[in-house]
Design a protein around this nucleic acid. Sequence first.
DNA 1: GCTATAACAGTACGGCCATATTGCTACCGG
DNA 2: CCGGTAGCAATATGGCCGTACTGTTATAGC
Lengths: 210, 210
Amino acid sequence: MPRVADHDARHGQITDAVQRLIVRHGLTSVTVARTAAEAGMSVGLVQHYFTAKDEMLLATFTRVNGRFTTRVDELVNRGETEGRTIAEMLRQALTELIPLDDARRAEFLVRRAFADQAAHNARLATVQRETLVGIRSRVAQAINNGTICGEVTQGGDAADQALRIVAFAEGLALHTHIDPDGTPKPAILAALDDQLGRVFTGTCRRAQLG
Amino acid sequence: MPRVADHDARHGQITDAVQRLIVRHGLTSVTVARTAAEAGMSVGLVQHYFTAKDEMLLATFTRVNGRFTTRVDELVNRGETEGRTIAEMLRQALTELIPLDDARRAEFLVRRAFADQAAHNARLATVQRETLVGIRSRVAQAINNGTICGEVTQGGDAADQALRIVAFAEGLALHTHIDPDGTPKPAILAALDDQLGRVFTGTCRRAQLG
DNA sequence: GCTATAACAGTACGGCCATATTGCTACCGG
DNA sequence: CCGGTAGCAATATGGCCGTACTGTTATAGC
C-alpha cells in the first residue's frame, strides 16, 4: 500500500476553504482553482478528494450544518449537567442562529449562500430541510420536556410552538443580518426571550429531564 | 430622431424574463443569452437596455421589491376604503411575504436568490435593506395608528413590535418554503394571526385613520 | 529494496459567458 | 423625401471555469 493521508482532515481543509471564500466574496466566487489556492493545495488534489465541484459544495453545506447542530447539542448537554432551565438552554441554542458575532455571521452567510441553490438542487434541499426540521424537533422535544417538568404550563401542540419559536429566531437572524443598525443586539435578545417566555411560563419542579 | 421604443416596457420584459429564469433554475442559471432568449429578443438588444449584466440584475431585484411594496400599499388603501381593521390589513399584507401560492413563491424565490449576492454587493444590499425597513416602518405606522384608534391597547415601542411581527412572518415564510409539508397553510396563518393578536388586542373606536 | 499504488502537482482542453464590435433597419424631424 | 440616429441583430473575442489527463513522489507491504 502506498502512502496514506487523513481523508477527513483533507475534506475539512477543503470545505473550510470553501466556507471562507463564501464568507469573503459569496458562493458565486467559489471556483475549484480558488478553493485550492485558499486551502493551500493544488487543483489536482482538490479533484482527488472531490470528484466534482458539486460534491465539494454539498460537503461544505453538510459540514457547516452538521457543525451547527453538533454545537447546539453540546450546548444542551452542558446545560443539562449544569442544571440550567430549558428556557435558558433554548435561548442559548437559538442565539446560535443569529449573526451577532463573526463566527455566527460566517455560518449564517454560508447557510444563506446555499439557499438559492437548494431551491433547485434536490440534495442540497434535503440537507437544508433536515437541518431545519432537526432544529425544530429539538425545540419541540424541549417543550415536551418542559411540559413534563413544569416549565411549560399551557397545553398546545409542541411542534406548532416549536415552529413559531424557530421561525421567529430565524426571522430575527434575517433582520439582524440585513439591517444590523436597526436591530441592536439587546433588542434582538429581548425579543427572543419574550417569545420563549410565552411558552415557558412556569418553573421546573424536578432537577433533570431526558 | 429615429424610431422610439417604450423603454420601460422593454426593461420590464427583460427583468420579467430574469425573474422567470430565477424561479425555474436559480440565479446562477441566469445568463445574458438565456435572458434574451426567454424575453424573445436578441442579446444585442438586452445590452442596448442594460449596459452590464449587473445592472440587469439590480433592476430585476429593484422591480420585484417595488412591485411587492406597491401591492402591499394598494392592499392597505383598498382595506382602508373598505373599512377593514388594521389587524386584518396587516394580516393580508404579511401573508404576501409567505410562499403559499405560486405567485408568492415566485417572488419569494427571487428575493432569496439575491440574498447571497446582496451580502457582497452594496447596491443590492441597499435595495434589500430599504425594502425590509420599508415593510417594518409600514407595520410600525400601522401599530401607531392602531394605538390612536384603539386596536392596540398596550403601550410599547412600535418599531420593536413591528420588528417582531415582520421577523416572525419572514421566518414563517422560510419554513413554508423549505418544508412545505411540515407547515400546513392553516397552521401558518393561525400562527400569524396569533402573533398579530398579541399586539392588536382592542377594537377600533373610530372609522378611519391616516 | 523493490513495487504497486495512493497522494499530489501541473497543464491542457473544450465550453460557456459577458461584452465589444459591426452592420442593418426603421422612422421621426425637417 | 431624405438624412441621421435609435432600435435591433448577429457575430467576434478574450477570459475564466470545470474537468480530463499526464506525470512525479513517497511509502506500506512484501
